[in-house]
Computed example of a mutant assay.
Amino acid sequence: MSYGAVQVLKGINLEIEKGQVVALIGRSGSGKSTALRCVDRLEKINDGEIWACGHRLTNPNLDLRALRQDVGIVFQSYNLFPHLTVEQNITLAPRWVKKMERTAARKLAEEVLEQVGLAEKIDSYPEQLSGGQQQRVAIARSLAMKPKMMLFDEVTSALDPELTGEVLKVMEDLAANGMTMLLVTHEMAFAERVADRVVFMHQGRIREEGPSSILTNPATPELKSFVGSHH
């Protein structure tokens, strides 16, 4: 089953199968974050077609709320509400969008916090958490909507190296449990280990793509030089 052909920027063609993990890599400004943001309709699409989880993103009557229930996105800035507890941050959307009542919402928060290893932080406030913990709460918040696909946009780039590992582990667990994922990352070792496919973008186009082995055996001089600068 295909999760849609994404044609963005300068004629990108990309299909992601259900349960696949696809890593978008490339230098700053190569278009990878823009490509990712198009899949959640955070960027306007001028040309071409994008389908995600059965939603045609170029449809003028697209139900954005329905799309964003199916496609979760996590950014490098966690965007948690500082005046709300972890539970309230996580249950805001399910209670608002899905009209979930309080007890069920708390149970859901416990469940998704368990997935990211933070069950004991349910009543904490964001300021009481480290950056890595806040990012894991942001992932839990996305999971609470039970998405079919998750987008991750450089989610570890604002974190110290020792906090990066705990966030990557959560993503690795999600991948192992069959979540369809499209991620923009500069963590090459992680992409090599977890991604089913790696897509190297260069100047708004896909320059090279294939299994993660292309990182150890690049075919193009551009990817070779990119990988060289990241090891």
Rank of each mutant, 00 (worst) to 15 (best):
K32M: 02
K32Q: 09
K32D: 06
S33H: 06
S33V: 08
L36E: 00
V39K: 00
E43Q: 02
N46A: 07
D47E: 09
G48Q: 04
I50L: 14
A52G: 03
C53E: 11
N59I: 04
N59P: 06
P60Q: 11
P60R: 05
N61V: 10
D63M: 10
L64W: 12
L64K: 06
R65M: 15
R65W: 11
A66N: 11
L67N: 02
L67A: 04
R68M: 01
R68Q: 04
D70R: 14
D70M: 09
G72V: 05
G72N: 07
I73E: 00
V74W: 02
F75L: 10
F75N: 05
S77K: 15
Y78S: 03
N79I: 06
L80R: 00
F81H: 09
F81V: 12
F81I: 07
F81P: 00
P82W: 05
L84G: 00
L84A: 02
L84I: 03
T85C: 12
Q88V: 11
Q88S: 14
Q88D: 12
I90A: 01
T91R: 10
T91H: 07
T91I: 14
A93G: 14
P94E: 13
P94L: 10
K98D: 14
K98I: 02
K98A: 14
K99G: 12
M100D: 08
A104V: 10
A104L: 11
R106M: 04
K107N: 04
L108E: 07
L108Q: 14
A109G: 13
E110L: 08
L113F: 03
L113A: 08
E114I: 06
E114V: 12
G117S: 03
G117Q: 07
G117M: 01
